[in-house]
Amino acid sequence: MIRKLLGATLALGLTTLPALAEYPEKEIQGIIQWGAGGSTDTVMRAVTPHAEKALGGSIVMQNVTGGVGAIALNQVVNGDADGYQILFGAENPLLYKVMGLGDKDYNDFTPINVLARGVPILVARPDAPFNTYPEMIAYINAHPRDVKFGSTGPGGLPSVVTAMINQKTPIDVTFVPYDGDGPALTALQGGAIDVMPAVLGAAIEGIKGGTMKTIALFDVEASEALPEAPTIVSTNPEFGALLPWGPFFGVFVKKGTPDDVVAKLTAAYGEGAKADDFKALMDGRGFKMMNISGAEAQAFLAKWQSTTAWLVQDAGLTKASPADFGIPKP
């Protein structure tokens, strides 16, 4: 009896297996590098339902936070390269090596899609005694250490923007550290800090509501979401060489994942990123859609790493030189 049953199950298993063997044959685990409610989380949770539809499978999303995302990255890199673990990440891993946070970065991954790029913006509290970038520099020079800049630890967007500023005109300000641009912008509205380099998406509603004001948009062209914000190159063209620059969001799998799986996922996310409501969400939050994959994405990542790693190296923020890891000078 048992034997018969076993035989039957086995036969059933054998007949159903080939039908299932096509990827994805089970739930895919999606690891988000940042906490729930953050911008990486929002972006990934918004695009994934569209990608699931195109893929014909389900992706279980899960936030694995800590160590500026290094824990999530290591979890995926230590798993199997079978396409059942996807990493939803931001730009941070490209600086892990120089920041001494680990020896793995996106070079150990295959990019599925680099979805979008954020635009940095310098904002100030509404009653700050300056309105434009040159005025701010003049004020800082006249009142050394008086102006309080928000910061978020070396390697984050604020530190990179500050490094850019320092490279052009060294400034003497007090840096008050926060654990993300959300809390820092809250502090800005309460007057605890004066100026904050942030990503446009996090500041846009505050600017529109008048709880903070724009000093300069760190991009070469004006933003469609906030057309009246002056670009930094309109007053200080010397920044042109460093821009455009910005944090980005990407979908990755471990290197060595079978080509057909990569192709399927790439197609799915390429399709998902084209969805109208997703594009509307990204535009509304001031992100620039990129939706690139394959060699184009690889090239983007390599260029980003080289620019940024050397920028923070020159600002003296690194624990090890980019040269040690073969990251070329831009």
Partner: peptide, 10 residues
């Protein structure tokens, strides 16, 4: 945000 609203001062 995902549902197209813009939580903020406005």
């Amino acid at each position: 945000f995902i549902h197209g609203l813009h939580p903020g001062p406005m």
